[in-house]
C-alpha cells in the first residue's frame, strides 16, 4: 500500500519552511530529515515545519523530528512547528518536544517567534 506523501520547501532569506503532507512515518520522516539537513548545511538555523496537511504522525516519525531538533541544537538553531492537531500537540508535549522546539498555531506565528 502506497503512503502518498510530499514535502514542500520554501527557503527565505533568514529562515526556511518545510511543509509536509501525508502520514509522517519513517519514510516521510527520513525524507524530511534529509531536506532539513540540506538546509542546515546551507546555513539555515531557523526552520519551521508546517504539519497542517499531516493528519497522522507515528512515534518513529516524531523520533526523526527529534533528530532535526538535535541537529539544529548543535548549531544554536531553532525549530518551530505549526499546524498541529490537538492530538499531535498533546503527543509532542508528552514527549518533551515542546521544551526544545516551539509550537505555534500557524506559520505566521512560527516565523514571528524566531
Amino acid at each position: 500500500m502506497a503512503n502518498k506523501f510530499d514535502i514542500q520547501v520554501r527557503a527565505e532569506h533568514e529562515y526556511a519552511v518545510l511543509e509536509t503532507a501525508g502520514y509522517l512515518n519513517d519514510a516521510l520522516g527520513e525524507d524530511l530529515s534529509k531536506k532539513a539537513q540540506e538546509l542546515i548545511e546551507k546555513g539555515y538555523t531557523q526552520l519551521v515545519i508546517n504539519l497542517e496537511q499531516t493528519a497522522l504522525i507515528n512515534s518513529i516519525g516524531i523520533s526523526i523530528l527529534i533528530e532535526i531538533i538535535e541537529a539544529l541544537d548543535e548549531r544554536d538553531g531553532t525549530l518551530n512547528f505549526c499546524g498541529l492537531s490537538a492530538t499531535q500537540e498533546r503527543t509532542f508535549r508528552m514527549m518533551a518536544i515542546a521544551k526544545y522546539a516551539g509550537i505555534f498555531p500557524d506559520e505566521k506565528a512560527a516565523i514571528a517567534n524566531f
Binding site: 523520533s63 527529534i66 538535535e70 508528552m94 518533551a96 526544545y100
Partner: peptide, 12 residues
C-alpha cells in the same frame, strides 16, 4: 539522545 527527557524511541 542529547536531552535525556526527550528520548527518541520507546514511546508507543
Amino acid at each position: 539522545q542529547i536531552h535525556t527527557e526527550m528520548r527518541k524511541r520507546g514511546w508507543g
